[in-house]
């Protein structure tokens, strides 16, 4: 069982690491999701082999358990659930960042985005404009979006 779990964790982590190294930003996010999932598997695995929760080590049992019966550790489940929710929110944030980049460049390829930024910077230098151009209307636009979504 330990070998099987370790293999699964390793394969999931490996595939995730491969995807993170791609140029396509969506693949990067999918890769990150896989890597986080390998961590959750690892947390669950930390409770699997224990059998009698943390009781053997002198931890206080969460529920009174009949003598001799095995119970898996409830704490790892809670930990995995918490970590899962955290990673869900971060992944949602990453996807929204990608969407923002896509809206600006109509591509999700990292190299294309960098190239577009370089071109923009060069164009700005040629026009001798200050590089840190602020957008005064950005605030109003946001409000506009809000009104529409209501």
């Amino acid at each position: 069982m330990i070998l099987a779990i370790s293999l699964v964790v390793a394969v999931v982590f490996g595939s995730g690491a491969f995807l993170v190294l791609q140029r396509d930003l969506f693949r990067v996010v999918v890769g990150l999701t896989l890597i986080s999932n390998s961590a959750f598997l690892f947390i669950i695995a930390a409770g699997l082999t224990r059998g009698t929760a943390g009781f053997a080590q002198g931890a206080v049992p969460v529920l009174p358990i009949p003598e001799g019966s095995a119970a898996s550790d409830p704490l790892v489940q809670a930990m995995a659930l918490t970590a899962l929710v955290i990673s869900l929110s971060t992944i949602a944030l990453l996807l929204s960042l990608i969407y923002r980049l896509y809206v600006a460049h109509e591509t999700v390829d990292l190299e294309d985005i960098s190239e577009a930024e370089m071109r923009l910077a060069e164009a700005l230098e040629r026009e001798e404009e200050p590089e840190e151009e602020e957008k005064p209307e950005a605030g109003q636009e946001e409000e506009e979006i809000e009104k529409r979504s209501r």
């Binding site: 990150l32 944030l93 990453l94």
Partner: peptide, 12 residues
């Protein structure tokens, strides 16, 4: 744009 890209790299 460069800030959003920075945020993406930072987050990843």
């Amino acid at each position: 744009d460069y800030q959003v890209r920075g945020a993406f790299i930072f987050a990843v």
